[in-house]
């Protein structure tokens, strides 16, 4: 563990690997509201870079009953820098690129204002909230089961 000092006092800075192992365990145990899930793509990847996430479409929106799959890529500088997030399932959303499925960090507040203590679970939960936002909840969606 490395200790980092800030103006308000000392706070523990958890190294990348420990932090990702913690997130992996949370994913396995299914901690959270039960509508998002995530885990590692490749159990043999010692750097724990590639992750898969799913979001279950929120109620009373066009996304209800759909399961959206995403790919998250945590580079070496995670959690200092946010992971890159890409939808694998096709979705029509204001913050998602219609060709590639990439979540545009400039249009998605959580990535734009990233903080070290944010997690992948936070990203998925926030994306789910974004789906239920007024600008996205009624957008006509591509057929279910199509991918970028």
């Amino acid at each position: 563990m490395t200790l980092g000092s800030s103006g308000a006092g000392s706070s523990v800075v958890v190294p990348r690997n420990f932090r990702l192992l913690e997130e992996l365990e949370r994913g396995e145990k299914g901690i959270g509201d039960g509508t998002v899930s995530y885990g590692m793509d490749d159990a043999d990847d010692i750097y724990m870079r590639s992750w898969t996430g799913t979001i279950i479409g929120p109620h009373n929106t066009v996304h209800e009953g759909r399961i959206y799959q995403l790919k998250l890529f945590c580079d070496k500088d995670y959690p200092e820098k946010p992971p890159s997030v890409r939808f694998h399932s096709r979705i029509n959303m204001t913050c998602v690129n219609h060709e590639t499925g990439m979540v545009d960090p400039r249009k998605f507040g959580l990535l734009a204002n990233w903080q070290r203590d944010y997690t992948m679970e936070n990203i998925l939960t926030q994306l789910k909230k974004e789906m239920a936002a007024s600008q996205n909840r009624k957008l006509v969606q591509p057929p279910e089961g199509t991918f970028f």
């Binding site: 899930s37 885990g39 898969t52 799913t54 279950i56 799959q69």
Partner: peptide, 9 residues
């Protein structure tokens, strides 16, 4: 039933 584990269907 649609089961999801660690982000996978």
């Amino acid at each position: 039933q649609r089961l999801i584990y660690k982000g996978r269907i």
